[in-house]
Amino acid sequence: MTKNIALAGNPNTGKSTLFNFLTGLKQHTGNWPGKTVVRAEGQFETDRHSYKVIDLPGTYSLYSNSADEEVARDYIIFEKPDITLVVVDATSLERNLNLALQVLEMTSNVIICVNLIDEARRKGITVDQKKLSEQLGVPVVLISAREKVGVIELLKTIDQMADGTIETCPYQIAYDNTVETEIEALEPKIKQLFGDHFPSRWIALRLIDGDQHLLDALKAYIQRSSQIKSDLELKQGGVSHGA
């Protein structure tokens, strides 16, 4: 079965370059923040699996600030990609990790791609792959998509994650006592509504933050799934009547 890979990351970190490399497509790339605002899709195959890659718009955060941020966030939450590749810029890791940490709150099947590693080296920046991976609790791969450095390891890691042989333990941001208590109170109620379909801790946090857009998206989801269910029942009912 085809596995879905979502590419997330800040603007201008080379997501589209990586996308083109993986899929062999020729999407326009440019040194330009905000170049990709629509989802681009492509495919590739390894010896083990075939993959569909979705290039999400580059954003600095995944709150409901603007249309492109919502596109990226809704994809990760509602479409549930098998793997989310977070592309981060090695030359400004600190700023880029903000987004990576938000993704880690949403899903545990994450690979962190530290891109532009050649540029970082020129600027005298060294990223400790092992330490970063230990801290974040997910695989970290150092690559240069432009120079095609580290991509073999990336493909190997993708295959392993698709196989389910990688155990992840995503970094969890600890909030202050008031927020944590509230999250704790909310989580069981959210589980009652959605089961384990959504990351309940993250949903709880978004509700506490008063994220109206997410609330609307969740309500639309409930209506959609009940519609599908009743359609299904109607169909089954019709068949049993006929029999």
Partner: peptide
């Protein structure tokens, strides 16, 4: 929330990045 995210990014960067 935003402050905690920034702090965490900073801590992580301090341990894993050398310049």
């Amino acid at each position: 929330i935003v402050t905690r995210i920034y702090q965490s990014s900073q801590e992580l960067t301090n341990t894993a990045v050398e310049r």
